[in-house]
Design a protein around this nucleic acid. Structure first.
Lengths: 208, 208
DNA sequence: TTGCCTCTCACTCAATTGAGTGATTGACTT
DNA sequence: AAGTCAATCACTCAATTGAGTGAGAGGCAA
């Protein structure tokens, strides 16, 4: 029995060549391909795919939400992210949304096929870089979702204690500007625009 | 059997006249009077007072710590704070340290005598203003130790969400300056010097 | 009525902060 | 050898912030 596959990918060329590639293999059955995932829930319910290949960046609903839609509509469907992003934040959001695999678009076709087999077999195909990031996120005791560096975590901890940039610099024996530099990087990673927001997020999400 | 009393009060004049006043009543026995409470623990253990009158502002150990020392050394001794402060923060610290009563120095002598009788009878003499504050601190659901006004709590909640003064003003439909005014008052009450510290304290102590 | 408190608003000033940009060093990978 | 990344430092600029001070309106209580 062939593996039923659906593709969500807004790049027409890529989507079509992927579909062609899969159709050319007897063990796969293309159940549909779409350039957006606005109706992902319905599609999943109607066509009952075994595997969904999901891009992240699409007009309308993002692929991240697409994962959620598919998994809510049909949990037994395996969703593999297939994207150019190795962005830490997006990666984690996809995993939280229930993605079963995460392959970068640089993945050669035969590896993609292997990934599909792997996910069907109950595995979680991941590009090496991704796998590394995922493991790293666990080996730290905390939930370092935002991939802060050790130094940044130190700085964040001091920030939470209410320290000013100047105090942080003194405490860590680094320059005022370096401390501010770390702070700026932290804000970027946490997706916030001020120390206050950073503290709120850090304490709220148990980052430290 | 007379009530054994010890006084800790750094103002010599006040301390001596208090001692004189108490000694003149047959039902009281002055077991000692001190201008500091550095040896409060030892004194309590040795002289086994029934009641301690404790000032707050003293050189060396503060009266707040004095309460702790006495109560740890001899829990059955009743400690009555006798002070000019109706400061919210100090009040709460004293209560947390185990004070059994809190009388303002404006209390007339006969009320002081009543307070001593009351604390011996297992009561908790408090000047009216103090009693009010204590009750108020409980009627709010949270642990509003710092006696923030309702408006200030609103502002603090927004601050914790990472809002800037400008955003808080917009949200509450008040002026930028008013928002900043509230923030300044909050910082004073929380004993902090910045929004970041305030957030840390508020989240850490479950104020909101 | 007087006094106290809350909430409101305003103005100033110095300091801190967020942002943008860029550069250097050393460690580790490829 | 080239590339990546963490960590360091520097400089600018506009905006925000903390502080200090003052003041008016309304509510509530002694």
């Amino acid at each position: 029995m062939p593996i039923r596959i659906i593709i969500f990918e807004d790049n027409d060329k890529l989507r079509e060549s992927l579909a062609y590639l899969l159709k050319s293999q007897p063990e796969y059955e293309m159940a549909g391909d779409y350039n957006n995932c606005n109706d992902a829930a319905t599609i999943a319910r109607v066509y009952k795919p075994d595997v969904v290949l999901m891009d992240i960046d699409m007009p309308g609903e993002s692929g991240i939400n697409g994962v959620r839609l598919v998994k809510e509509a049909r949990p037994q469907t395996s969703v593999i992210m297939y994207t150019v992003f190795e962005d830490d934040e997006k990666l984690f959001q996809c995993l939280c949304a229930g993605a079963n695999g995460y392959l970068l678009k640089q993945t050669p076709p035969q590896k993609l096929f292997e990934g599909i087999q792997e996910v069907i077999a109950g595995g979680s195909p991941m590009s090496p870089i991704i796998a590394r990031k995922v493991l790293n996120s666990f080996q730290h005791g905390k939930s370092n979702k935002y991939f802060l560096t050790p130094r940044e975590i130190e700085v964040l901890q001091l920030l939470i204690k209410g320290y000013s940039a100047k105090m942080i610099a003194a405490d860590l024996k680094i320059t005022f500007d370096t401390a501010r530099s770390h702070l700026k990087n932290i804000y970027q990673k946490l997706h916030v625009n001020s120390g206050k927001e950073a503290i709120g997020k850090a304490l709220g999400e148990h980052i430290v």
